[in-house]
Structure formats: structure tokens, C-alpha cells
Design a binder for these strands. Structure first.
Lengths: 216, 216
DNA sequence: CAATCGTGTGAATTATACTTCACAGAAATT
DNA sequence: AATTTCTGTGAAGTATAATTCACACGATTG
């Protein structure tokens, strides 16, 4: 059950949008001003916000930025009466997921909402996957030792790592290096040398924090 | 090859100790004053420091504290000519691993050194084990979801967790709860309610840091 | 140019982690 | 008092991860 927030100063439009969206299975709430919208966003989590670009008092872009600050996960669809390429591009750059230009058909609205939600689901899936990969990479002591080595020495090649760890079979190391590479924790340059990526560095920070804590 | 630092103002004793220890397979270095010892500790890692309690200029306890600050992992064995229970207890409290009272026999010295090193090995092993357990615990998405729930709700019982996660077979949850309990990340009170331990809280902090970073 | 070393692949095996199922005693409910 | 729900155990099976082995190919060295 996805939750939507409709923000528009036109009460008639709010009512119509709410009816259409409710009919399609969404839960809706609405706000007549940007201020009211922000207030509601502070108290309740929304999946999608339909935000009128042209409203009295606060302009659409500022409202967009403020809403994104409060709820980074919420997807925002801008609604604008005078569609111009520039304003649309600007809104997307500032974090809007899509935009609709008045007047729009019911189908247009629904397909846009569905697409945005679908994209959100996909994004979440991707992030969760990365996270899973990172953590399962850290689960193996061998891989952690490889990371420690790379952290200390900056970059090393296969046989250097293999010998340093005292492992006989180099293909074992190849196996673990591949996993670390696929998780984006390490990378390899043209000279076949392995090193930590930016994310790998951050991961090591985290690891060290945890290690220090557990070592009391 | 374990590295020892001998700190004593008596040159004769330093020479004797170094010979005995070298004969037993250790690498040694020495210092005649506390200041010199601290200087050497800054540039080189030692496994064990033999530290005379009674020295001119700096007293033994201060030297002990300073050395521990520079190299927390180094094990320190205090040497004292006038053994008293109080000074020994004090030294142990301040971080010394053991103490020897002059005069001591060669065997006494060697067994003390060996025991201290053995204890150190054991400690390290324990810590590494905890760390392994913690990270392999975090590798499973189910377990991370359990942790998130416990983080949000403080404490929950088996069936609450099971239903909240939408899992049909409760024994599956039992399995994962057991792993989390064994890693010391969660604990259970007499009412059978599960909650995060102190380490579990810290672990969640780490996890959130990493998650935020990976979510860019 | 032959031999050695470094860097890997892919298949087969082994080990470990995870899930499922059958069951059982304690606690709560009817 | 009987029934249902909760909390678990232990064995069996399944899935996934890790290791080992046989081999290949380019680079370097003698």
C-alpha cells in the first residue's frame, strides 16, 4: 500500500487526483501549501509526492529541496502548468523523479506514478544487493586479511598477496580476489596490481571501528 | 620470532638477560633509562618489555603507563628488587602482565615470559573469533533484518519477529536468533524477549554508516 | 628456444550455511 | 481439563561457498 502526498493550491484538482489515485489502490493525503506539505512530511512517510511547481508563497524548487531533505527516499513528481524544457530539467537535477504538465490525462498520471515506483523498487534492490555483497565479502577472514594487506601496502599483485598470507594454492587467492573485485571493494589496474577502491577504503574504516570496539 | 625490550639501569643485568633470552630464541634490544625505552618503543614494536621498577629519574609505574600508551599490545613484565605485594598488585592493575622479583632464576624468567606470550596468543585468538562471528552474523540479510527490527523496537519475542518478517517457519528464525545470540550481538531476558546487547548497538552503528555510504 | 614464473579459468570435490520437517514441553486460552 | 499458541531441539536434506586440481597462456629469464 503506497502512500502519496498531493500538494496543490487548487482544491478541486486535489480532490480529483485523490479520487483517481485512491481508485488505483493508493493511500493519499493532501496539502494546499508548500508549508503544509513540509509539515505533513515531518510526521508521516510518503512514497510519492505530487508537487505543483507553481504555488503562492514558496516556489516549487525550494519546496522540492526541502521535502527531499526531510524524506530523501520519497519520490517527487513535479506538476507544472507551463511546461518548459528548462524547468523540467532543473527539477530533475534537483531531485524530482519525473514531471507532469497540466493538463494531463488520468492514464498519463497513473503510468508516471507506476514507473516512478517501479524505478524506486529497482533502486532499492540494487542498493540492497551492493550491501549484501559487501557484507558477505567481509565475512571471510581470508578476504579481510587481503583487505588489511592492501590497506597497508596500497597495491599488491597476486603472488605478493599469496606469499604474504602464506597460502600455497594461488588459485584460492584468485577466488577471493574475484569476489572482492565483484563487490567493488578492490580494483585492478593494467599492471594487474590490486588496490582498494574508494568504497573499499570506507569499508575498512568501518571495519576498524568495529574491530577496535570488539577488542574493548 | 618474538621481540623483547630490556629496560634496566644495571648494564651487567641487561647483558645477562639478553644472553639468556637470545639463547631461548628471542630477539632483544635494551635501554638503560625509561626515556630511552620510550624512545625505542616509538620506533619499533615489541612483544614483551622487561621493565625495572626502580630506576633513577622516572619511576616504574609512570614508565609502564607511558609504554602502554605507545604500544598497547606490548606485554610488560615488571622487575623489582624489593618485592612487596602492594607494588605488584598496583603494577598489574596499571597494565603489567606479570612481575619478577630480584633475584630470580633463569627458569623463572623464561617460564614467566612464555606464560605471558601464551596468554597474549590466547587473547588475540579470542578477539579474532568474536570478530569473525560478528561479521559472519551480518552476512545474512535475514539476520540484518532481525537486527533492524530489534534496533527499532528495543525488544521483541520470537513470534513477533517471525510474523513481522513474514516468515512462515518459525524454526528458521530460531536458527538465526541462535547465531546472533552466540555472537553476542543480541541477548534474551527471562521473559524470552530478545534485544540488542551493547556490542549489538555498536554493530548497528557501524552497519548504518556503511549502508549510508553505499547508498551514496 | 626452453624453462620457469605469474596470472588466471573451469570443473570436480568438499565444507559450511541454511532450510525444512517432525516432534515436544511450557505457557496461555477456552 | 482440553486445546491452542509459543518456544524451542535435533536430524535430514538442500543450497551455497570454498577449496583443490588439471590445465592454459603470456611474460620473463637463463
Amino acid at each position: 500500500m503506497k502512500k502519496m502526498l498531493i500538494v496543490d493550491d487548487d482544491a478541486e484538482l486535489r480532490k480529483n487526483l485523490a479520487e483517481i489515485l485512491k481508485a488505483d489502490g493508493y493511500v493519499t493525503d493532501d496539502a494546499s501549501t508548500a508549508g503544509e506539505a513540509i509539515e505533513k512530511a515531518r510526521n508521516d512517510a510518503f512514497d510519492v509526492v505530487l508537487l505543483d511547481f507553481m504555488m503562492p508563497k514558496m516556489n516549487g524548487i525550494n519546496a522540492l529541496l526541502e521535502l527531499k531533505k526531510i524524506q530523501p527516499k520519497a519520490k517527487i513528481i513535479m506538476i507544472t502548468a507551463f511546461a518548459t524544457v528548462e524547468s523540467a530539467v532543473d527539477a530533475i537535477k534537483k531531485g524530482a523523479s519525473d514531471y507532469l504538465s497540466k493538463p494531463f490525462k488520468i492514464d498519463e498520471l497513473l503510468t508516471t506514478v507506476r514507473r516512478v515506483l517501479e524505478e524506486a523498487r529497482f533502486e532499492d534492490g540494487m542498493k540492497k544487493l551492493d550491501f549484501d555483497n559487501t557484507l558477505s565479502s567481509l565475512a571471510s577472514p581470508i578476504r579481510r586479511n587481503i583487505l588489511k594487506l592492501l590497506f597497508a601496502r596500497d597495491h599488491m599483485r597476486l603472488m605478493e598477496i599469496t606469499r604474504e598470507l602464506g597460502i600455497e594454492d594461488h588459485t584460492k587467492v584468485v577466488f577471493h580476489l574475484k569476489i572482492l573485485k565483484e563487490s567493488g571493494i578492490i580494483e585492478q589496474d593494467m599492471e594487474k596490481s590490486y588496490s582498494l577502491t574508494r568504497e573499499g577504503m570506507k569499508t575498512m574504516d568501518c571495519l576498524k571501528t568495529l574491530e577496535n570496539f570488539l577488542a574493548k
